[in-house]
Design a protein around this nucleic acid. Sequence first.
DNA 1: TGCCCTAGTCTGTGATCACAAATCCACTTA
DNA 2: TAAGTGGATTTGTGATCACAGACTAGGGCA
Lengths: 190, 190
Amino acid sequence: MYGDIAPGEALTLRGIGREFNVSMTPARESVRRLVAEGALSLSSSGRVSTPELSNERIEELAALRALLEVELSSRALPRAHMALIDRLQSINATVAEMVSKRDAVGYIRANLEFHRTLYLRAQAPAMLAMAETVWLQLGPTMRALYGRLRRTEPPQNHKLIIAALKAGDEPGLRLAVRSDVTQGLRLLVV
Amino acid sequence: MYGDIAPGEALTLRGIGREFNVSMTPARESVRRLVAEGALSLSSSGRVSTPELSNERIEELAALRALLEVELSSRALPRAHMALIDRLQSINATVAEMVSKRDAVGYIRANLEFHRTLYLRAQAPAMLAMAETVWLQLGPTMRALYGRLRRTEPPQNHKLIIAALKAGDEPGLRLAVRSDVTQGLRLLVV
DNA sequence: TGCCCTAGTCTGTGATCACAAATCCACTTA
DNA sequence: TAAGTGGATTTGTGATCACAGACTAGGGCA
């Protein structure tokens, strides 16, 4: 999810087991679960690797993010109190710091924490789980993007999200979330 | 997905293995995958069973169906040719037949085939996979509903969907799909 | 020089086993 | 009569193994 693994990287059950000091059995179960969620892809011969997403697939996943996350933010809005907004602002500071340090993995992690913190307030666990599944699928590819991209300005859309939350402005919130989610991935499709 | 298993029914790895003439290992992997997709729930002690959904969860999954399937139908609309509409009409006849025979499992199966046939045209595999994940989670509960429900009239919304497809009427299609998806599940929440 | 084949290695699969924890059931007791 | 209690059984977990298929690198051939 955080892009520690590059797209197309191959994994072996014995290798995973060695890495975590377990036998093949738990490694196999974990891999199977991640395959079921689309985080890993299974070749016809049973080899597992991180997926290399086509442009169509990236666009589709971005549309899914927009669909799910706009709804989640909308459901979180009525429950968003000041403590949550403070929390989001603090996370956003970390996001900005990671951007300036050009720490891609740290950026992705902080960015997703920002979104997850907001969506947790929506009280919609199944919907959040689906959003996280999408993040999982996009992880390696997003990392590959932000590694290429040399950007040092902090995310503008996060500020718009926070402003809309403060103002209780639902249309504004939906638009800001949609932009935030779509923008980064638009650069990916080249 | 089709509701063959009642909500809350417990499963054992050895039992599944016996049923399909395999050892525990493949049974375990299959179960793990279904747990990852939310189709089965895992107790703290590792026991697996079909989930018993709360009303809030049902409502949330219905909202997810609406979100995803409206988008899928909308993407399928420009690609929907006459052959597809014929196919949908033929499936719909099966749906009506299952309703009149009061075959709940057959009805769910035919109904989902109707939807899947339409959504396949959307050329959005990740989105369709998510919709099917939701179906998987709702399966046992839907079956329990339709078992209670004594209805003999064929689904009206499917006709509206077909009519909107013929007319190329996108707003009408979105509305019809949303109603079809929401209606049945609204009765579930009591 | 470039292609192809072959032997050796690596990999996933399914089966089986030992073990600890959870569950169940019959019996006892208040 | 109902709650508690003990042991017997069932359950999931992680490890290990044999095996078949896939991959890889090296040598032989055209």
